[in-house]
Amino acid sequence: MLRASALFVGVYEPLKQKLLRMFPENLSAFAHLTAGAIGGIAASLIRVPTEVVKQRMQTGQFTSAAGAVRFIAAKEGFKGLYAGYGSFLLRDLPFDAIQFCIYEQIRIGYMAAVNFSSSIIICALTGAITTPLDVIKTRLMVQGSANQYNGIVDCVQTIIKEEGPSALLKGVGPRVLWIGIGGSIFFGVLEGTKRFLAERRPTPSESQPEKVK
Rank of each mutant, 00 (worst) to 15 (best):
I98Q: 01
F116P: 05
D92A: 06
A112N: 13
I120G: 14
G109E: 04
L89D: 05
S118C: 08
Q99W: 03
F88Q: 07
G84V: 10
V114C: 05
A113S: 13
C101W: 00
I102W: 08
F88K: 03
F95D: 04
F95I: 02
Y110H: 08
L90V: 04
F116K: 07
L90M: 12
S87A: 15
V114A: 06
A113N: 09
A97N: 01
I121R: 03
S117I: 13
F95S: 04
P94I: 00
P94D: 08
M111Q: 08
Y85C: 08
I108S: 10
P94H: 02
Y85A: 15
D96M: 11
Y85W: 14
R107D: 04
A113Q: 06
A113C: 00
S87N: 11
P94K: 01
G109M: 05
I120V: 15
I108R: 15
I122S: 12
I102H: 01
D92S: 06
F95L: 13
F116W: 14
S87C: 12
L89H: 05
D96P: 00
I120E: 11
D92V: 07
A97Y: 00
S87Q: 07
A97T: 05
Y85P: 04
A112K: 13
G109R: 04
G86Q: 11
Y103P: 00
F88Y: 15
R91H: 13
N115H: 13
I98D: 01
F100L: 14
S87H: 12
C123F: 14
S87W: 07
C123I: 03
Y110I: 07
A112S: 14
I120P: 11
Y85S: 12
G109N: 03
F88E: 04
C101Q: 06
Y103I: 00
F88V: 03
Y103F: 15
L89C: 13
C123K: 10
I108C: 02
R91N: 10
F116Y: 13
I121T: 12
L90I: 02
R91E: 15
D92E: 13
C101T: 12
M111R: 05
I102R: 02
R107P: 00
E104K: 07
